[in-house]
Simulated scan of single mutants.
Amino acid sequence: MKLIHIMVAAAWSAAALPAFAQADLGASVEVATDERRRGISWSDGELAPAASVRAGVPFGLDLSARITGTRGDPRHGGADAVVDVTGGFARDIGGGLRLDGFVTGHLFTGAAEAFDYVEVGAGASYALGPAEIGIDARYAPDQAAIGGDNLWFGARARVGVPATPFTVNASLGRSTGSVDDWRRAARLRPGGDYTDWSLGVDHITGPVSLGLVYSGTDIEQVADSPFANARHTGDKVTARLAISF
């Protein structure tokens, strides 16, 4: 409960910051039945609270920080939480096309070993009315914390259902990379190279968003690593509630 209180306090503090001239400030608090990223759990299959803050400036630079409870997940060495610190940019280039790029540091608190790592990413999206499609790539260079390097690339789509508060979204991705230490490489690729997918729906009314997502992978055999967390690599339906400020 202490972690939840810290997250809520951080989000409220950010929301209460005085508005800087021409700056876009925001914050949110969330809770999910399981924190799943690229089809695998990051919270040992348990309830995951989260909070985030963001600041954007007119020329496209965005700075954000998000803290998420990882509930002692063995995937991250028993860490209590992960703090994702991101600096990035986004640029609308006209005709509904948008480009973005970022650098993210994943910082794990309470992990038994040094498990922090960094990744870079880029993406492009095209919007037409209530629909949007996009492609993304994320690359974590060779680092001891992840036992090599890791590349994820994928495609996504979403469409708002006209005259309703519902948005339908879907994604498909592929993870691959090199291996220096197979035990740690199993953190992000529990069974080697794999494909992940998701299909979900969000109900958005004002600052409140309620989502339901089915996600899965084609992982069949999990590496015999203490960081692979074989119990949480399969298909699952999760729910998420978020409030934005």
Rank of each mutant, 00 (worst) to 15 (best):
E132A: 11
S244Q: 11
E35A: 15
A65T: 08
W12D: 14
G154T: 09
A10H: 05
A9K: 12
D218P: 01
P162G: 04
L128I: 15
P162W: 09
T195E: 03
A51N: 11
R37F: 12
P190Q: 10
W197L: 12
R75F: 07
I6H: 13
I204R: 15
G211Y: 06
D92I: 13
D34E: 11
T167G: 06
D24S: 15
G173P: 06
L188P: 01
G110I: 03
Y214A: 15
P74V: 08
P226S: 08
R75G: 10
Y194P: 08
G160F: 05
G101Q: 01
R71Q: 14
D84S: 13
R98D: 00
G147H: 01
P207V: 05
T104A: 07
L3G: 13
A145I: 08
R138T: 12
R98A: 12
P49C: 11
P226N: 07
A15L: 07
Y214P: 02
G216I: 07
G77H: 01
A242G: 07
Y117P: 03
D180T: 13
G211M: 03
G200H: 06
T217D: 00
E46Y: 01
D44N: 14
A131K: 00
A90H: 11
H203K: 11
T104N: 04
D142T: 15
F102Y: 14
T217R: 06
V83T: 14
F108L: 10
T195A: 08
S52C: 08
L3Y: 09
T33P: 02
A242S: 15
A16N: 14
T104D: 01
P226I: 08
I146A: 03
W197P: 01
G177D: 01
I40Q: 08
D235K: 07
G129T: 10
L61Y: 00
G77N: 01
F108A: 04
Q22R: 13
S171P: 02
P190C: 11
F245C: 08
E35K: 14
D100H: 13
I243W: 13
A114C: 01
G39K: 06
D80Y: 03
V29S: 01
G206S: 04
A19Y: 08
V83G: 04
D84K: 11
D24H: 12
G191K: 12
L107Y: 00
S209E: 12
E119A: 07
W182T: 14
E46T: 11
I40Y: 06
L151A: 09
A114L: 10
I4G: 10
L25G: 08
Q221K: 13
E46P: 03
D80E: 14
E220A: 15
D142K: 14
S198D: 13
L172K: 00
R174M: 02
A50T: 10
T33V: 06
A21G: 09
S28Y: 06
G88N: 06
G78N: 04
G39Y: 05
H203A: 15
V179N: 00
S43P: 09
G69I: 05
S28V: 08
S43R: 03
S175W: 00
V29F: 12
E35T: 03
K236R: 15
E132M: 12
T104Y: 02
T86G: 00
V57T: 15
V103M: 09
P207T: 03
A239Q: 00
E132N: 07
A27H: 02
F153L: 14
A122C: 08
W42E: 10
I243P: 02
S198I: 11
Y194F: 15
V179S: 07
D224A: 15
L188W: 04
G148Q: 03
A32K: 05
